[in-house]
Amino acid sequence: MAQNSVFERFARAGYLASGLVHLIIGYIAIRLVLGGGGGTVDQSGALATLASTPGGPLTLWVAVVAFTMMGLWRLVETILGRATDPKSQGLWSEAFDRAKAFALSVTYFVFAFTTLGFARGAGKSSGAQESGISVRLMQTPGGKAALVAGGVAIVAVGGYHVYKGATRSFLEDLEGSPGDAVRRLGIVGYVAKGIVLAGVGVLLVVAALRSQPDRATGLDGALKTLLTHPAGAVMLVLAGLGIIAYGLYSFVMARHTKM
């Protein structure tokens, strides 16, 4: 199935949808600093913005299919391994790749489900949902420990993004020899997204340890927290630009990623 041409086109469209979402998130973050109104600075905010534009609902339905195909593609990789990786892998390396593929599969299925809500006109704020989930978890035995573990995992994912950008290992995912512009986009995009994700994880851990579920508001909360610091406006603009860079790099992946 992963090598089916129609399936591959829809899966690659998932990168386009992801890139568009990241561009809008970065735009909302910068607009917030420049006084252009509020808004939720995360995926739900981007989807709500897209839904309000002409042709937006149709775009969202296409994104639902694309994200679903991306999730299925990663699920196939989880089960069968990477069909396009010619390198012989050791047991631990292959296990890591399959675990990463599974995590990405879950992520894209969640994206598809969230996007479906906005396509149907019933989307909800991600931050509010995450805060509500945190409240319910803190009321259960072991819930606080689960939140801390989840926060640490998100920090680890963020650290992996920073590592991938700093070492340029993301180039191994692309076909051919990308130019300097692509390399710069990848470096900036991966490092910026990694730092932001790490911030989300730290806030989740702090919220759990302090029993303050209202602070566990995901990406929106992490980015808006920057504004509480003296140089917060500058940091938020840089974060927004970095997320936009990742969005642009996603367009490159739509065309050149190995599948």
Rank of each mutant, 00 (worst) to 15 (best):
Q212H: 11
G221K: 08
L185N: 06
S169R: 15
D214F: 02
R184D: 12
T167M: 13
L197C: 06
G189I: 10
L185K: 01
G199I: 00
G221E: 09
D173V: 12
I187N: 07
A181N: 12
L174S: 09
E172H: 15
D214C: 02
V202G: 03
A198I: 05
A222T: 05
D214E: 15
A198R: 02
P178L: 09
R215P: 00
D214N: 10
R210E: 02
A216I: 04
V196P: 03
A181K: 13
L204S: 07
V196K: 01
S211V: 05
G176M: 14
G201W: 08
V196A: 09
K193W: 14
V196C: 02
A207M: 02
G218K: 02
G179P: 12
E172M: 11
A216Q: 08
E175S: 15
I195R: 05
A198C: 09
S177T: 15
G176R: 14
G194L: 11
T167K: 14
S177R: 15
G199L: 07
G179Y: 13
F170C: 06
V182E: 13
F170K: 02
R168N: 13
D173R: 14
R184W: 14
V196H: 05
L171M: 11
G189V: 09
A207C: 07
G179M: 13
G179Q: 14
L204Q: 06
D220G: 02
F170L: 11
K193R: 15
D180Y: 12
V206Y: 07
R184Y: 11
G199R: 00
G221T: 03
R215S: 07
A198S: 14
A207T: 00
L209C: 02
Q212I: 06
V206D: 05
A216T: 02
V205K: 02
L197M: 13
R210F: 01
S177C: 08
V182I: 12
A222H: 03
R183G: 06
A208L: 00
